[in-house]
């Protein structure tokens, strides 16, 4: 049995200081001080710029590969078609049941998109790459959120006119308030979806878990979305009684969950 190998203490002893090495040491100290002064850009504006960079990166990748938005569009279209088999739109008025149909068509593809956002980072371990940059976790969340919002809005912008054609309702008079209602609710959905998307990217059966978590937490948002969309489709205004209350709740939801997600994202990314 061999004697155990000698373990040398960590870190060799520093060589005796000579005038040369002292000068070199001083030079290094100066160099470090200079580098310290010139740190990475910090502060709110720099973090927002980094969030924008992350979002732009996702958009650029999507524009080259077209992996996400076309798939979302076709899925939404399919949902519209399937739901139209369920309701008889020759007798039912679109403005009665249309809100629900539209929102189902919007949220199901969005769920796919949220999963895709982090699957994108899994290839090549890019999430580690992002975590190595000076950006903090909240910034990464905001960047991903912005990209998700753009994708969802793009899909909705394409589907909405199509739904007017398919279901024969008049879009033009209600377009402005409808667009606002759809946008403000989509933001909230993306806020929660981006958070849970990051979580479920690293669990088993993440593809199934994401909709489960997302839809249960987003119930208030869905209720508000359908109610306000329905009101607007029926010609109501945004400031009418209950619609206003719903919209206030939605804005509160958006704010609370975006903030909560932004603050807690670091706990999701760390290892």
């Amino acid at each position: 049995m061999n004697p155990p190998p000698a373990v040398t203490p960590a870190g060799a002893a520093a060589p005796a200081a000579t005038p040369d090495s002292q000068a070199a040491h001083a030079a290094r100290a100066d160099h470090h001080a200079a580098r310290r002064a010139r740190g990475p850009d910090m502060g709110v504006r720099a973090e927002l710029a980094r969030a924008a960079l992350v979002a732009a990166k996702d958009l650029r990748i999507e524009m080259r590969s077209l992996d996400n938005v076309p798939a979302m569009f076709f899925f939404a279209l399919l949902v519209l078609v399937i739901l139209s088999f369920g309701f008889d739109f020759s007798t039912a008025k679109f403005s009665d049941v249309g809100a629900g149909v539209l929102w189902v068509a919007f949220v199901f593809p969005a769920v796919l998109s949220f999963g895709h956002a982090f699957a994108l980072e899994r290839d090549g371990e890019c999430l580690s790459g992002l975590r190595l940059t000076p950006a903090d976790a909240g910034t990464l969340y905001l960047g991903k959120l912005a990209a998700n919002i753009v994708f969802m809005l793009a899909m909705e912008a394409a589907i909405l006119p199509l739904s007017a054609v398919l279901f024969g309702y008049d879009l033009a008079p209600v377009l402005a308030p409808l667009a606002f209602v759809i946008a403000v609710h989509s933001v909230g959905f993306c806020a929660v979806g981006t958070l849970f998307g990051a979580m479920t990217a690293r669990t088993r059966r993440g593809d199934v878990l994401l909709p489960i978590l997302l839809f249960s937490v987003s119930v208030p948002l869905m209720l508000a979305a359908v109610r306000t969309t329905s009101a607007v489709l029926n010609g109501g205004g945004l400031w009418d009684g209950l619609t206003k209350t719903w919209l206030v709740m939605t804005c509160l939801f958006d704010l609370v969950f975006t903030t909560a997600a932004w603050l807690s994202f670091q706990y999701l990314l760390e290892e």
């Binding site: 088993r204 878990l209 489960i212 978590l213």
Partner: peptide, 11 residues
């Protein structure tokens, strides 16, 4: 229930 499923599916 989602909370419990999340726990179950995270290894």
């Amino acid at each position: 229930a989602g909370y419990l499923l999340l726990r179950r599916y995270t290894d």
